[in-house]
Design a protein around this nucleic acid. Sequence first.
DNA 1: CGGCAAATTGACTCCACTCAAAGGAGGTGG
DNA 2: CCACCTCCTTTGAGTGGAGTCAATTTGCCG
Lengths: 245, 245
Amino acid sequence: MGSENQKKKPYFPERVQVACSQCTLGNLCLPRSLDALETEQFEHIVNKSRPIQPGEHIFRAGDKFQSIAAVRAGCFKSYVIDKNGEEQVLGFYLPGEIIGFDAIHEKTHRANVVALDTSSVCGLSFDSVTEMARQLPQLQDELFRVMSLHISELEASAADLSAEERIARLLCSLSGRFASRGYSSKEFNLSMSRRDIASNLRLATETISRVLARFQSAGIIRVNRKKVAILEEDKLKELARRDTC
Amino acid sequence: MGSENQKKKPYFPERVQVACSQCTLGNLCLPRSLDALETEQFEHIVNKSRPIQPGEHIFRAGDKFQSIAAVRAGCFKSYVIDKNGEEQVLGFYLPGEIIGFDAIHEKTHRANVVALDTSSVCGLSFDSVTEMARQLPQLQDELFRVMSLHISELEASAADLSAEERIARLLCSLSGRFASRGYSSKEFNLSMSRRDIASNLRLATETISRVLARFQSAGIIRVNRKKVAILEEDKLKELARRDTC
DNA sequence: CGGCAAATTGACTCCACTCAAAGGAGGTGG
DNA sequence: CCACCTCCTTTGAGTGGAGTCAATTTGCCG
């Protein structure tokens, strides 16, 4: 966090136009259900950021809400600082996922959002997006869809689960999200620290270590530092599922 | 739950038109930022339900998603059943609050929603709402605003809190919501059972009893069965606040 | 009045936390 | 290139807050 403490400045400084039609995320991101013509229209409101270094923030709690951001590459976490000065990790964001929906109602960002890897995002003026959504029903639908998904996921994460269930779920979630982004679902990198995972899952850092070690000695995963390999997907899913039915 | 197990039927059977302009919830509900003319337009897509008895469901997990519902009177809870057959209470809804946002993305209700008191709702075809939202920017804004608020609240409830903090928060939340609906913020009814509260807060039923008793003997609240009086609002807020800042 | 579910209270248990310490990994500067 | 520092992670030992189990009380409704 130290390297970029100097300033809260409005982001997306470069206004680089971006071709969504060329983007590998096409079918994961907001314009996924737009046709070629509509996509071109959409591109006019998208600003690609310069590369963002690990530890660099794209939103700060208290910032005026103007834009949402679509992750283009890398990984972000969002977090708040509670009254005890403790960091609370709210979530992790992978390419194609949209950041900032929690800021709409107060017109102010409540969360800090920081890159965990070298990353880039597409900035979208929320006013422009909503205006365009009035012209493009598909885009409006997609916005509601993504927000609804976000609500569902938060509801699901509110469940009362054991440490093992929580961690298994996170691994399954990441695995699935990597898969739909064309990466391996079996072997991937945990961009976030144990501490971040712990905070996000409301567990202690030590518990993350211990449970990962337990999963490993049970032959379910192989884990070394940030590298994780899922060896027994079925068993992991079994541990994860206290699903709703 | 027993009395109405007979059928999953599409709801809002009566198609009673409703005058939002006359509704006491006017400034809490979806049409809050519409002008007189727009409100009249909006009324055409609203269907008022007949009275709903305690224990009666308005949505069931698995139901096709067609409508969202605005609580008109009473109180609802939403819940899912997990793999162990345990009920997980996701949230409580008071008049003016909107139910069903978690169902949009899958076009299917994931949660069951049941009345806790004698209640009524306004049914809103989601297609009609979104279509109208394209004509009425204020309505579109309001939809995004309410969904965003919902996301924020879920994020906040994900925090890692003690039993006392959780319960204090729920009491504060209810108190505030009653206040903005014109009811007393100092004295109100818990429509939901201890069991529901426990499930929603991820605590044991016994813990709810114990903590409420502790709050009472500390002079912070007076509680008798379903009636709660907040005696020391400041102390309660103090207990509740491990706020984000 | 009687039967039943909800709520309360008490005793004991356990999972995850805290405290503490020891290994790594990576970065920096001499 | 190595020594050093710092942060992250892992492992161990003991504690505590909330859960579980069990029994009792209360309120509700026929």
